[in-house]
Simulated scan of single mutants.
Amino acid sequence: MASAPDHLFALRNSFYLGAYQAAINLSTSLNNLSEEDSIEKDSLVFRSYVAIGAPELVIGEIDSSKPTALQAVKLLALYLHRPENKETVITSLKEWLSDAAIGSNPVLRLIAGVVYMHEQDYNEALKHTHSGGTMELHALNVQIFLKMHRSDYAEKQLKIMQQIDEDHTLTQLANAWLNLAVGGSKIQEALLIFQDFSEKFQMTALILNGKAVCNMHMGHFDEAEHLLLDALNMDAKDPETLANLIVCSLHLGRPSSRYLSQLKLSHPAHMLVKRISSAEENFERAVQTVA
């Protein structure tokens, strides 16, 4: 019979790899945890509810009596799902981070990093995440540096993670992200990591997207499309699946308008939507100028 630490380990991995409902289900088996582990469990469960699009449950259940880590998750739910509250959330984050009593909380710093990364304010994100402290913070640093096109700094963060635990799921994920950014012969290494995940863990849209992006880099767009359609069956609103299907369809010479419409409806602030909208506006202006 699996012990509580085994269940918490499985819950973490499920969350890291995007098996959010599985993480929620696993949490029901976790009892008699230490206070620290209990807070971590609740944090991952509430973040899973945010990820599956149930922010109201998170916002409703986390009141002012809850620990700082959970209050931070509530801010994330408000930020991602109530756009009218973005400025309020950022103001609250700044106040909490400057509070000596709670400002160093790792989950609060992690949420701050995620929010500022969404804001594309990478320097502000790193201000709160760069010191690390948890594997999630190190992994987020890798993501931020890759967003900044600084694979050299991302590699330094990965080496820190490898020194802590080379086999950790987040270390392997970060390694795959870096390999994809570097490209070339590293793409095959990234594919092997995602393949290993698919053999060890429950298949998720995150794993399928990882394998698909590797195949797209290698020019195998038919295989990538097959993987992405499987991912779409798992989650019809997943933004990365829809974005990757748009790109894949264009390479295959197939219509992508349906996927773009879905992405615009479910994730209007997605980077690809913004880029396409900007390109369409520029085209319209050019047409009017010529006319």
Rank of each mutant, 00 (worst) to 15 (best):
K147V: 01
K147N: 00
S249M: 00
Y153K: 10
Q157V: 12
L158C: 14
L250T: 04
S261I: 15
L263C: 09
F221P: 01
L250G: 06
L242Y: 14
S261M: 07
E223P: 00
H270I: 11
A243Q: 11
I164A: 04
L263Y: 10
I193K: 10
F201L: 02
L140M: 14
D152K: 10
E225K: 14
Q157Y: 14
H138Q: 09
N233A: 11
A181G: 07
K159H: 04
W177Y: 14
L228I: 04
Q195D: 03
H226K: 15
G183V: 04
S256T: 03
A181V: 11
Q188I: 06
N209M: 12
L228T: 05
I193C: 02
H149A: 01
F221K: 04
L265V: 02
I193M: 11
M148S: 02
C214H: 08
N244G: 00
L137M: 12
S151H: 10
A176L: 14
Y153V: 00
S151G: 02
A224C: 05
M216T: 00
H220V: 02
G184M: 09
G184K: 05
I164M: 03
Q262T: 13
N175Q: 12
Q172W: 13
V273T: 01
H226M: 12
V247N: 04
K147E: 01
F194W: 12
Q262G: 05
K264S: 08
V247F: 13
A269C: 08
S256M: 09
L173R: 15
K200N: 07
L180Q: 07
E225W: 07
L260C: 07
Q188N: 02
Y153L: 09
M271L: 06
V247A: 11
A174K: 10
L208M: 15
N175Y: 10
L245Y: 04
L242K: 14
M203C: 06
L242Q: 08
F197N: 06
V213A: 11
H168Y: 05
